Amino acid sequence: MVKPSWLRVKAPQWERVGNIKGTLRDLGLNTVCEEASCPNIGECFHNGTATFLIMGPACTRACPYCDIDFEKKPVALDPTEPDRLAEAVRRMKLNHVVITSVNRDDLPDGGAAQFVRCIEAVRGASKGTTVEVLVPDLCGDSKALETILAAVPEVLNHNTETVPRLYRRVRPQGNYERSLELLRRCREITPRVYTKSGIMVGLGETVEEVDRVLEDLRSVDCDIITIGQYLQPSQKHLQVKEYVAPDLFARWQQLGESLGFLQVVASPLTRSSYHAEQVRSLMERYPRL
């Protein structure tokens, strides 16, 4: 299937990209930008932003849409990782940092304590930086979620990824209701934290099914939604069923705003952490004590 014109990305300025990659290699860090083959890597690296991937790069789940390696064996947590991540944030002078992880179902807390260590290290190294964590479903462990929220990140993001009907094929080890419950519990435990979720389209879902996901997310008071086109990382991954036209993304943006989302980011090239730093202006418009 030939990619349409609206999925073309601008060529990055490789000098800037190289500088960011150099910092990451020097500090021995992973980014989801690289591990998941994100199409926006050039733009984000050029702007000096990155989504850091902790506890990886090996994942304990085998989602057929994702380019992160699940064949490698997960390794023991590195106690130096939080400080190395914080040093990267300091060097890159980030105003907003996104910290995500592979699924670590092999750990008793799903890696919650490592998230906390990273949040605290960033706050210690760069006091003005806001922190967004993009967390896995933690196997539904409410105590693990409470552990992360005790560090009070400004944003807690958890992606629902797709519509319920496609979960068995797209996210076989996930559970749609469990993901909604995580976002609901987040709002209940720490109301001051902004909640966020994201979905991919182009996997065979209907317009009405996406509409229902937006309604479900608002029913648990989710603040921010991202919607983007699924792109097949390789021939071994799920095939794209449809390249969704930009006017449909515009429709979902309007619907999301009418449902009461504080921020809706919807376009073919949108990814969960794309332009995540814009949440800082949202926090100024809709402050929470």
Score class of each variant (00 low, 15 high):
R165P: 04
R185S: 08
L248H: 07
D221N: 14
E205H: 05
P268G: 06
G228W: 02
M200V: 13
G174N: 05
E161R: 07
I199D: 00
C186T: 15
T226M: 02
Q232F: 02
L217T: 05
T162S: 08
Q173W: 01
C186A: 15
W252R: 10
V193H: 01
D247M: 12
L262R: 15
E188N: 05
S197F: 01
T190W: 04
S258V: 05
V240G: 04
P246V: 15
A245I: 09
T206P: 06
L166M: 05
E208T: 14
H237I: 10
R218S: 07
V170R: 04
V265N: 11
L255C: 02
V170T: 03
E257M: 09
R184P: 00
V240H: 02
R280F: 05
D247V: 14
L180T: 00
P164N: 02
L180K: 09
G198H: 01
P164M: 12
E205P: 01
G204F: 07
R169E: 13
L203P: 01
T195M: 00
Q232S: 09
L231T: 01
Q235I: 07
N175M: 08
R271D: 09
R271T: 05
E181P: 03
Q278T: 14
S234F: 04
V163P: 02
L203Y: 01
L259I: 13
R280V: 13
L231V: 10
K236R: 10
P172K: 15
R169G: 07
R187I: 12
L180M: 13
C186W: 15
S179Y: 05
V207L: 14
E242R: 13
R185C: 04
S179G: 01
R251H: 13
L231C: 11
Q278Y: 04
S272W: 06
I227D: 00
E215C: 13
S281R: 15
Y167C: 06
T195S: 06
G202T: 07
V213L: 08
D223H: 11
